Computed example of a mutant assay.
Amino acid sequence: MSKKIYFLTTLLSTFIVLAQKPKVWIYSDMSDKTIKGKDHGTANDPDDISGMAGYLLMANMFDTKGIVIASTHRSEHKTSGNQAEWANTFFGEAYKKDVVHLNKNIGGYPESINFIQSCIKETAEKYNSAKTYNSLKEYKTVEMLFKELDKSNDIINVLCWGSLTEPAILVNYCITKKREDILNKIRFIAHWTNSSLHQGTIEKPWKVANCNEDRSACEYIKTMALNGRVKYYECGAIGQHGIVTGSPKGIDYFDQFKKSNLGKIFAEGKFVFNSVDHSDAATYWVLLGDWGVNLNDITSNGTNLMEVEQKNEDQFKLFSKSIHNELLRRSDAAVSK
């Protein structure tokens, strides 16, 4: 293949990717891991830190509409300080440094990524199944997503990395206000709010950390999905036991990431059992669809049959090394001249 044809092919491929970027909104329980707490010694499990760094390395593949952090119910967050300020410094500065070469070598990355602090961060409020949500005035980060959906002509993929309180409030509000048009533009993609294979059982698949966190929200939104009111793709534990379990092992491999700013955050966010835990990343890898598991492999009604979860887990294990090598390629591109 001549250099000219290669260039044109690459340019066309880039154009196609840019034209089809899925719109994404993220709800994460992520917070500064120096805040002391009971979850792995910190207020919230730091796996979302590695997951977010991976997302930022892949950010040219998505049209990011919002990232809400500290959407959680930890008492430590009543006085823990503004987590958006932390994230906009911690991730924001690393991203701004790396995006220069990422755009030179790969292209399509937004100049900056902004983070928003969750409206439930300080109150630790949980979804109330007995309540009708008539207003979003007290739930600013839910209202922000509602407004984004209201003006959008496309589906927005809401990635759920922890608590389902805010998504449940949104669904309740839309049903109360008879805004089915909004519900039709939402696609929830959740990590591990149900599993018969890991943590949960066949009898109690909901008995997993992310569902125990706010079970009323979990039960409500899954009932709405089962009734066809919303689309809810349940990944189960395929990120943890597929992508993470199947990953390359050893400090030598992951030290290679530390040459870039985002790569360093990825490698150090949560490094346990000789690899990086970024299990929530399953939600965006299934959205991309070319890495072993795609949305067609998962039902849209919130259910998660054991055999389906096992198949998807096995597929992610097969593709895990390719996924990590792609992240490493991008980390290297962030510092390559």
Rank of each mutant, 00 (worst) to 15 (best):
K4H: 04
T10V: 03
T10M: 03
L12M: 07
T14Y: 06
K21M: 07
K23P: 08
K36D: 01
K38H: 05
H40P: 03
T42I: 03
S50Y: 07
G51V: 09
N60E: 02
D63W: 00
K65Q: 14
K65W: 03
T72M: 03
T72F: 01
T79V: 01
T79R: 02
G81A: 02
Q83H: 08
N88E: 05
F91T: 05
G92F: 09
Y95V: 04
K97V: 13
L102C: 08
N103G: 05
G107Q: 00
G108H: 04
N114V: 06
S118V: 00
K121R: 12
K121D: 12
A124K: 13
N128A: 10
A130R: 15
K131G: 07
L159K: 10
C160W: 00
A168W: 07
V171E: 06
T176C: 03
T176Y: 11
R179I: 01
R179Q: 14
W192C: 04
T193G: 01
G200C: 09
K204Q: 13
W206E: 15
V208D: 01
A209I: 07
A209Q: 06
S216K: 06
S216F: 02
A217P: 01
A217G: 07
Y220N: 08
K222E: 09
K222F: 08
M224L: 13
M224W: 08
A225Q: 09
R229E: 05
R229P: 02
V230S: 04
I238Y: 00
G239V: 02
V244N: 05
S260R: 12
N261P: 02
V272A: 06
D280N: 12
Y284K: 06
Y284N: 03
L287I: 04
L287F: 05
L287Q: 04
S300M: 10
S300F: 10
T303E: 10
V308N: 14
E309W: 14
K311E: 13
L318M: 09
N325K: 09
R330F: 00
A334C: 04
V335P: 04
K337F: 09
